[in-house]
Amino acid sequence: MPLTIRLRVKTSIPVEVDSIRLETVREQSSDQVKATLVQYGNKQVSLGEFFDVDGSAADDQMVWEGDCSHVKLIGCELSSGSIRVEGNAGMHLGAEMTGGEITVTGDTADWVGAEMHGGRIHVHGNAGHLPGAVYRGGFKGMTGGEILINGNAGNEIGHAMRRGLIAVGGRSGDAPGFNMIAGTVLLFGESGIRPGPGMKRGSIIFFDGASAPDMLPTFRRSGLCQPTFLRTYLLHLKSLNFPVPEGLLEASYQRFSGDFLELGKGEILVRAA
């Protein structure tokens, strides 16, 4: 049985669990894990105050259960192994992770995979703002890995991302790819306004062409295309059970270049009818 951490006492005050790391709990008994100090508001308390702990992570697996929407920093800086959240997860899920895999069956909050470097996060529900983003004041956001969100996501998806893939199955918020340096953002549903402001390089793709937002005036139309790389991405997403609508593999796309306020080597592709 994998190490199972089950929320027992619900709290509206955030609990920060960055001290619970797969790398360390792997070697620990469930009692030791229970005794680990976590941040509760402005206090430090043991994990056991809020959670029941069973099983062992010797096989590199950890499961969080319950509505952990106020539990922050689950799987942050993960380097290998797998974490499953049965329910919701709080902010900063998988932030700065370098490898391994995190799956969330419910929803997550803001900053999913912020400044991550590698690995994969798959959220089956919705995510908040700023997935794969840079923390405020920083230089670059995610530099590698994948963030797949089957549901909706908020604003500034992939803010200043440098490399990697973000896919959002549902609705996405305003300014996806804000200041992005490079990387790929795939948006399957409706989107908010102002895509790719300040993007230097990278690709943002709107698969729901009919609902795509207006382009900013600093982007230029640059032809119709059928990029082969999209095929590779879509097949990859399908293989991971990400819901990819039919008909995308054959579609053609209107291409826009920008942002010409910056380097202008970025592209936004909007599926043509």
Binding site: V134, Y135, G137, G138, F139
Partner: peptide, 8 residues
């Protein structure tokens, strides 16, 4: 102040 990323 201008480098919260460094201070963090």
């Amino acid at each position: 102040k201008m480098m919260p990323d460094d201070k963090r």
